[in-house]
Amino acid sequence: MADKVTMPVEATHIMMFARSVNDDNQVYYDADHAAKTEVGHILPPPTFYRSVAQFDPDYFLRPKVGEKWFGSAKGPSGIDEKPASSGGLHAEQHFEYHHPVKPGDVLTVTTRDGEKWEKVSARAGKLMFSETIQDYHNQDGLLVVTSRSVGVKTERPVDQG
């Protein structure tokens, strides 16, 4: 993740995101409905903030113009070399909500590394954990959301026992 990313909060993105988590709560879709609720405006669903990946020009899990992509194409992978590991998995995710967010807000998202540690598991070999902390400030400089995520890289694919 780039150290600093600008994330405009848009009503259409919120609508599409709500659809993608099976959520038909009209507070995510209908500004007139939302205006009559306690919140008073459309707001993002609680896990929306990780969609900051959309706005990160360097995000590595998005195919990019002119670059090879490691997913399948003519063959099972679009790159020749074998990927270094089975890839990172998401182990934990924690959000803290400090202030309301609404469409029209422009968030500045700063990313920093947290702790790193290792563990051995019977199902996937050596597990390498790393923590990432993201602060979301709005256009007024107010800290609105904090995200802490823990990623894990496994030595081999997780056994499905």
């Binding site: 707001l43 995710q93 924690h94 803290e96």
Partner: peptide
């Protein structure tokens, strides 16, 4: 809506 202060999970 808008009532959460914290939400965290382990996968």
């Amino acid at each position: 809506d808008g009532r959460l202060k914290k939400y965290g999970v382990r996968f």
